[in-house]
């Protein structure tokens, strides 16, 4: 049987998709897994991107943290798998300083 062997990428691979939605860099944020409670940088998540959508999973317990699907002109985003995302607001202040 011919097949590609494929496992996961790290969370940085979702940077492009997520930057279309969020003003801040989510891959640099810390997220808490709603299943096991582990708090890690999103960049450390395990990313499955070859299927019908993007699936990010907890690096500790493999439960789904985030799902993203592009449906023609809409983006569907599910972040139920994270209790919170903690983002560095200094980033935003830096970019608003640039705007001013």
């Amino acid at each position: 049987m011919s097949s590609h062997t494929y496992d996961y990428l790290d969370g940085n691979a979702a940077a492009g998709e997520l930057s279309k939605i969020f003003a801040m860099d989510v891959t640099a944020a810390k997220g808490q897994c709603a299943h096991c409670g582990a708090t890690k940088r999103f960049a450390e998540a395990h990313l499955y991107m070859l299927g019908p959508g993007v699936v990010a999973r907890c690096a500790v317990c493999e439960h789904v943290l985030l799902r993203l699907v592009n449906v023609r002109q809409r983006v569907f985003l599910d972040v139920r798998g994270m209790t919170y995302l903690s983002l560095d607001a200094a980033q935003l202040e830096a970019s608003s300083d640039l705007d001013a």
């Binding site: 011919s2 097949s3 062997t5 494929y6 499955y48 070859l50 299927g51 699936v55 999973r57």
Partner: peptide, 10 residues
Amino acid sequence: TDFPVLSAGP
């Protein structure tokens, strides 16, 4: 003719 492997998880 290939058989791509598309998975949403491990």
